[in-house]
Amino acid sequence: MTVLARSSSVALGRLPRPGTVLAGGFVALVVLAAVAPGLLTSDTPTQIDLTNALAPPSWEHPFGTDEAGRDLLTRVIHGTGLSLGIGLGATGVSMALAIVLGAAAALAGGVVDTLITRLLEVTFAFPSLLAALLIVAVFGPSVTTSIVAVGVGSMPGYARMVRGQVLAVKESGYIEAAHALGHRPWRVFRQHLLPNAMRPLVAVVTLGVGQSIVWASSLAFLGLGVPPPSPEWGALLDAGRGYITTSWWLAIMPGLVIVLFAVAVTSLGRTLQQRLEGAAR
């Protein structure tokens, strides 16, 4: 059997598929746009040129221009940082909450577990976007509210996964071995339990970043996200909505970027998932 296993791993090879390379390239480009937008475009996102308003895509303006003659590509590039930030922030918020709730439920067991599990079930039954809308309605639209709203909305799914993982890892031999060596419970949790429980979730988190950006954009599209002058992707989409019949590029181009990014991140996440599952025994 060992022979078979060995030969099949050789056959699989370590070369990434072309799709993965493409997705990786796109994500790298987006990250670059977020970190250093100046490298990708020399224009400023607020450069008004009324003589060139609502120009369709051309070599000079690949994404066209908006009603104020601002170059849409430049605005998309400059909006990347905000969009990506909201995506990462929201995922961070939901993972942090999920770890606290999921791990507490799994480790405490008994009444605590029952209570947390019930709470999660209730929030599950509540549509996530509706939960996000509720939070925005209470605190008013802003970047922070977007992060918190999307983060809280997507938390229950992660919390359930964390709980399941912690339950599984808790019973593993190396946790018992660490206790047998006389390590303190907190150290065992920090060094062995949490990292190993989170390992399979890395891929899910990657998928979550893409999902969060789509959600944050949805909020912005509904006018409940980052307020309009900002070039956040969802806000751009919302601004383009009014011109959909006359100047299609205003909505289509930012929409395309959102979709492509979500697809790229999802593809990377899936590849990562397969790699991790392949590496696990």
Binding site: S172, G173, Y174, E176, A178, N196, A280, R281
Partner: peptide, 23 residues
């Protein structure tokens, strides 16, 4: 109370691999 004395009694399992943190 036991924790500080645990080192005095060690253990070797049947399946060593599962008793090692995979990372």
């Amino acid at each position: 109370q036991r924790r500080s004395r645990r080192r005095r009694i060690g253990v070797v399992y049947q399946d060593p691999l599962s008793s090692f943190d995979p990372r």
